[in-house]
Amino acid sequence: MRLLTHNMLSSNIKGVEKGFPLRIEAEKVVEKPVEMNADFLKKMFEKVEWKAFVEASRSMGYSNLPEEVDPAMLESDEFLSRFHHALLELHLEEGALVCPETGRRFPVNKGIPNMLLHEDEV
């Protein structure tokens, strides 16, 4: 699971009000190089919840993202490549995503987050 996916997911258990962001429990993180696509990054920049993204990247062991951002930064190659690395090159292979409200763990195995809810959660 890459941080792009993490930034989109939430714990949608019945009754949970604030299921985002899911806390990352990282057991195994791998890096895989991906070709950079600036247009794609610019579009995703508008969608990403930055605070959650910075926090998530930190829990994956990457702390080179600025706390505060503005769109002007997209002009900087240095910024783009960091954003790219954190968004698409860091993978959570094994671990879990934890609901901030209930503590329910959504396991991540072989890079796939299991977001299916239990019977008593829908």
Binding site: L4, T5, M8, S11, N12, G111, P113, N114, M115, L116
Partner: peptide, 20 residues
Amino acid sequence: VGLLRADNNRPPWRSGLKEI
């Protein structure tokens, strides 16, 4: 860029997310 297990009857997306 992402593969997940989810039920499309109960999508796992955060509530503010749209037009992505």
